[in-house]
Design a binder for these strands. Sequence first.
DNA 1: GCATAATGTCAACACCTGTTCACTTTGCCA
DNA 2: TGGCAAAGTGAACAGGTGTTGACATTATGC
Lengths: 207, 207
Amino acid sequence: MTARRAGRGETTRKALMDAALRQVARGRSFDALSLRKLTQSVGIVPTAFYRHFESMEALGLALVDESLRTLRRMMREAREQPVPHEQVIRSSVTTYVHYVQANRLHFHFIMRERFGGVATLRHGIHNGIQLFVSELATDLGRFPVLDRWSAGDLRMIAGLIVAAVTEATDLILNAPEDDADAEAEIINTTTRQLRLIVLAVPQWRSS
Amino acid sequence: MTARRAGRGETTRKALMDAALRQVARGRSFDALSLRKLTQSVGIVPTAFYRHFESMEALGLALVDESLRTLRRMMREAREQPVPHEQVIRSSVTTYVHYVQANRLHFHFIMRERFGGVATLRHGIHNGIQLFVSELATDLGRFPVLDRWSAGDLRMIAGLIVAAVTEATDLILNAPEDDADAEAEIINTTTRQLRLIVLAVPQWRSS
DNA sequence: GCATAATGTCAACACCTGTTCACTTTGCCA
DNA sequence: TGGCAAAGTGAACAGGTGTTGACATTATGC
């Protein structure tokens, strides 16, 4: 009976987090989740929840942390990889799209709770994304075409890129999981949007 | 007692919708709202809810409708107004920002439930925004610089513009209501983002 | 192998949830 | 002025909610 409670050495804490992630990916927003249903789906009695988290909100914050770590991991890997000289944009977008698909639950959670009903989660995610934008801005500043740009201009353009990528993320998550055509179209559109931005860079002069 | 139930000739149905909008603007997501609390805040007994809506979801759909109408109204007004020749972008952005501030509740609702927990609302909002993007695309096609662009390219650029504006909307809603500095900065950043896009247009050649 | 801390269980609590039904009040239209 | 439909009421339901405290089980380090 208690043997399947967390399954194959998985810690119960992690099982609770995964259960919550799954419920969110299924459609419910985090602040509509029920502690009892969560514990039930893990095979645990409700009161045992408190052995792992102080409250529902604490669970949410742990999920924010985990999900944002997934985001940062992506950026780190992207930075370590050598930049391909041809088709930089297209290959980056493709990599990103696949990364999102491989981490659906985390991205789903971020996208939903970014504007969700729990203030602390919202702010945590917001800060994480702002950090992401900042790092992208400094990364962009290393490109020869952009090395004379002001910090403000770099942030402005980084924000625009993130906005485009965010839109793409939404589309990916809402598309059927293995629809190759839809995926191709999303990659295409996003690639063209980023190309358009890059095209504008040499024309820009800060006011 | 019953006199204040809907207040000054306001219909109760509208009062219920407004109460829901306020709760959402306060932070809760729609699928975490409670029918009972809603009716209570309107000064009505729970069962009376069903005199006006078949279910909570029906209320939500009515709110989607109302909010999207606010969005369309903005676009219509923008179209009817003569285009100022100088500072088109800046003045458009400023107008938009003020419009959002004047209709905080509706925009808040759209932003939250766009990725929220109730599927039908999510889809309704998604469709509404897609329609918005399409209309923007055809509007853009009327500009001399863009009249030779393909429909796909127009949609691509319209999507990018909407992404930038969406980001701005988020920032406005999360900024304190009368922070003039924050407002100015949001207008500034968004204006520059749109200018960057416009700057790229003459350089673009469809692949 | 035993003590000890971590983890899980059980019963119970006070409360909140949506929805039903039969009933009363209100306001409008003929 | 009477009648009728719309709107609001109140009691009751079956079930779900988070959280409490005292107790049982499991596993781990000495």
